[in-house]
């Protein structure tokens, strides 16, 4: 044997680390599943809280909108009787807002014969049910005329509408357009008149809700952080001995970090995605049992769900990686003999 020099340990390709990870997950399937469950539960919790907030806010909005619609409809039916088989006139002086769209949909649901329509025609109704007419002709032979939207239509004047509508009801859906008395006839607004103290109460309620939302999200984030960190820390610390042994056998610190990084990412991604779905499904189901599927369905929004899922997944992966990599990095930097004994 000749005098040998000390050389540098080879850096192994990432595929070797990946192989070690897959083997590790396979061998420790039970343990991996427990860790995965930790991540999954944390993220499911966070996701269900976020979804719950969306649902509650949405349900609040939806309920208010339904009450508003009910109020508009009861005004109309009080004036003209049941709307089924009747034709109404609509002057759309601008784009429709949500209550207006709901009103049109409700009229169709209740079996109104059709709408005479002046202005931009909504596309979602069958041809024939909405009959476009010139602005000056709205109101001929209709039970009532509704002015929707906010703005001005050239060539429309209240006089013509009043004349066309004859003795019939003319109403606007925006209070800004209401005319106190035009040609001896008041044009009333269907939009609710909020009293100052009501507005104040509503704003206070909104502020309270916003505060509570932030509070709940902060708390649930903390719970998630602790849950995931705990699961990942456990799975790393119980392998300190193994890390020490690997170092004794010539593993580079970088290799050990790589192994834990890959493993934490895999567990983080899988756990987060499953957790998102579970949390979402659970929240939707639980709220549906309280509020009904119909209301919850109306309250949910796809883009918001997608954003929450993205947020939760990113949070889950980042948390898992940080919680696993940090202690693994510390252990891998220790002298092997210390890592063998360490229990940090």
């Amino acid at each position: 044997m000749t005098a040998s020099v000390i050389r540098k340990q080879v850096r192994l390709p990432v595929s070797v680390a990946f192989g070690v990870v897959m083997q590790g997950i396979r061998i420790r399937l039970g343990r991996s599943i427990v860790t995965l469950m930790g991540v999954m539960l944390g993220i499911a919790f966070l996701m269900s809280i976020l979804t719950g907030q969306t649902v509650r806010q949405g349900v609040g909005r939806e309920t208010a909108a339904r009450i508003e619609l009910g109020r508009m409809m009861s005004f109309l039916t009080a004036e003209i009787g049941p709307v089924s088989e009747r034709t109404l006139g609509v002057v759309a002086v601008g784009p429709l807002n949500d209550p207006e769209r709901r009103l049109v949909a409700r009229l169709r649901e209740l079996g109104a014969a059709g709408l005479q329509w002046s202005g931009a025609v909504p596309a979602e109704y069958p041809a024939g049910w909405i009959k476009p007419v010139a602005a000056g002709e709205v109101g001929v032979g209709t039970a009532a005329v509704l002015v929707m939207g906010e703005g001005r239509v050239p060539g429309l004047d209240w006089g013509t509408v009043m004349t066309n509508a004859a003795e019939k009801v003319v109403a606007t859906t925006r209070k800004a357009l209401a005319v106190p008395a035009a040609g001896g006839m008041a044009v009333t607004s269907l939009e609710r008149e909020w009293q100052p103290d009501e507005v104040e109460a509503r704003e206070l309620g909104a502020r309270r809700l916003a505060f509570r939302t932030i509070w709940i999200i902060v708390i649930s984030l903390l719970v998630t952080v602790i849950g995931i960190a705990n699961a990942m820390l456990m799975s790393v610390t119980e392998r300190f001995r193994e890390i020490g042994t690997m170092k004794c056998l010539g593993a580079l610190s970088a290799f050990i970090r790589q192994v834990f990084f890959i493993e934490a990412s895999l567990l983080g991604v899988t756990g987060s995605v499953v957790g998102c779905l579970v949390g979402y499904g659970f929240a939707v189901l639980a709220y549906s049992l309280t509020y009904g599927f119909d209301l919850v369905g109306a309250a949910l929004s796809m883009p918001q769900m997608a954003m929450h899922m993205l947020l939760c997944t990113v949070a889950g992966v980042v948390l898992s990686v940080v919680a696993a990599i940090y202690p693994a990095g510390v252990a891998s930097r220790m002298m092997p003999a210390d890592a063998l004994r360490s229990t940090v």
Binding site: K8, Q9, E242, T245, M246, C248, L249, G250, A251, L252
Partner: peptide
């Protein structure tokens, strides 16, 4: 440096530990 130490532990020296330190899994 740590690269050279790793090489040393891997290639130059073989250890039989008192407690074996076999990897359980």
């Amino acid at each position: 440096d740590h690269n050279e130490l790793a090489w040393l532990r891997c290639r130059k020296i073989g250890y039989v530990f008192q407690t074996y330190n076999l990897i359980r899994v």
